[in-house]
Each structure stands twice: as C-alpha cells, then as structure tokens.
Design a protein around this nucleic acid. Sequence first.
DNA 1: CTTGGAAAGTCAACAAGGCTGACGTAAATT
DNA 2: AATTTACGTCAGCCTTGTTGACTTTCCAAG
Lengths: 165, 165
Amino acid sequence: MADPNTGEGLLFLTDEQLRKGIEAMFFAYRGFTADPDRILEGMDYGRAHHRAVHFIHRSPGTTVSNLLSILGVTKQSLNRVLRTLIEDGLVEARVGRKDKRERHLHLTEKGRTLERELSDAQRARMRAAYRAAGPAAVQGFRTVLEAMMDPEMRRQYQGLKDGGS
Amino acid sequence: MADPNTGEGLLFLTDEQLRKGIEAMFFAYRGFTADPDRILEGMDYGRAHHRAVHFIHRSPGTTVSNLLSILGVTKQSLNRVLRTLIEDGLVEARVGRKDKRERHLHLTEKGRTLERELSDAQRARMRAAYRAAGPAAVQGFRTVLEAMMDPEMRRQYQGLKDGGS
DNA sequence: CTTGGAAAGTCAACAAGGCTGACGTAAATT
DNA sequence: AATTTACGTCAGCCTTGTTGACTTTCCAAG
C-alpha cells in the first residue's frame, strides 16, 4: 500500500462510486423539478417559464440577451416563453433608457406571486434536504456541483451582480 | 444567542443559501448532461436513448416495466426509444423463460460500445469534479442529493440488485 | 450624416421526447 | 373460462428545443 493510487484515499474515485454519483444526479434532479412542475401543470406554463421567471426575479432589469446566455437557449425559444409571460401580465419589458434596443425585464406583482409560489415549493424540498444532511454535507454538495459546471456556467453562477436598468 | 434558530448553526438554511443551491443544481445539471449530449448529437439518438442504455447496462436482463418505473415515463415514450435501439442492434429483448410475457433487456456488443463511450465521457467530468472537491465533499454531495429524492426514487437508487433473466 | 452591425423581434418549419387514449395479443392467474 | 398483466402499437397532441430568413430599431464609427 505504498502506492497512493491503491490506498484508501482514492476509493471515492472508482467507477462504481462515479456511477452512483451519476445516478444520484439523475434521481435527485427529478425530485428537484417535481414540485414546481406539479404547480405549473394545469396552468399554461411549463419548466421553461419557471426558469425565465426565476432568473428575472433574481436579476431584475436583466436584458433579453443576458437571459439568453444564462438559460442557454435560442432567442426564438426564449421569445415564445417571454411573449406569453408578457401577454399574461407576469413580466414587464421596459425599453432601455440608455440603449433603447434593449429590453429590461421585470416581474409584475402577478409575476412575483407566481415566482414566490414556485420558489417556496422548491425551497421547501431543498430546506428539508439541507436540514437532513447538515451543514458540512451542504458545503460538500455545493463544492462538487460547482466543480461539475462548465467554466462559462460557473461564471454565470458566481457573478450575480448584474441588475442594471 | 441562546435561541438555536438564530445561531450560526442554521445559517445554511437561509433563503439566500437555498437559492444558491437551487441554481447550483440547474447549472451543474447542464454540465452533467453536456458531454453525452455532444456525443449523441449527430447520431440518431438523444438523451432518452442514453438513459435507457445506461439502466440496461446497470441491470442486464431488466424487464420493460422495470425500466418504466425507473425512468418514470410512459410505455409509449419508452417504446419509441427501445424500438430504435433494438432495430439498430444495440439492445436485445429476450422473451422471459419463466414468464413469457416479459422481455428481458440486454445490451449487445454494439450497445456496450456506445454505453462505454457515453459513460466514459460522463465519468470523466464526474471524476474531475470529485477529485477537485475531495472525498469529504463527495460524501456531502451524495448525502444531500439522496435527501432531495422522492422516497420512491430513493428506493430505486439504493436497491440495485434486480438482474433476473 | 451615413452606414455597418448589434439587439431584438417575428414567421415558418421541424425534431425530440414527453403525454393520453384506444386497441390488440399472448400468457399468466384466478 | 374469465380476468389480469406485460407488452406493443397506432394516432394525435403538447412543450420546448432547433435552424433559417427577414425586419425594425438604433448605437456608434467612419
């Protein structure tokens, strides 16, 4: 056991352990999206609307292209979602003051109500999981997830200043 | 600070921390699926085929209904995927010996080749993340993910005996 | 002041992968 | 013999992603 590659220290890198991690991601993500999905079904909205509402809430006044790069979809795809949200009065698109080509996105009161409903549900599950796992586990959870992201996404994740208007 | 609810010990349960966890899941899952998606694009296959191949590999001889409950989709949806995999010679469906209604699913050599390519890519990212985060973080990662699952999924995740034939 | 190009929006067409409902068949179970 | 189970299939629908082509607006550089 002089060889560090055969020592106990690296047992967490075996293919079997990695497979368990992969499956954990798969099953956990299902749980992660289950509650908002349940709320959304019945309304005319889906997961794509949830994501848009979430990130507009997080960064009020964000522009369309900003949102595009966060969500990683095409503008046509986002536009379809955004249009219904604006038509239904959940989102307001304000023409930029400095650059009038830009649209700064804000939630209306109605939009904030939906956002709260969705995020309350999602946070409730998250909170239960965090509480059950404890602070040390949560720290590890965040560390591994961050290491799994593409560098570009990691930048999106870490830098939330944004804002503007 | 005699009240435990205001102590430092629960700071990891604030809404802000939970929001960070939610976004970490979102961005990490994108990274998680990126590499297999890249391999699959160009072939006639997608993420659904990957999932089927993964779980058939994990539990050779599993039945169709078994797979249905693991993947959580309708039989029509799974059938569309399974049919192409069988037609293309990646998966073999053997009629059950004891119960001839059942189809026991196995990967062919060709199927194993694709499985290996996909899981190698996915494991590579996972391994890099694990290595960067360290064993303690990995332990926490798994603990939190497990706590996030629906109870039913947790059972699927934990009990992998299965097998059959 | 003109113009090139970025930002935003729109139309059309298409694909993957979910879903429901209805129906058929073979085999096991009662 | 009747019912239930496991599986397959046809048809049709929805959401959410894609590409391509085109227009309008408007900032900024020449």
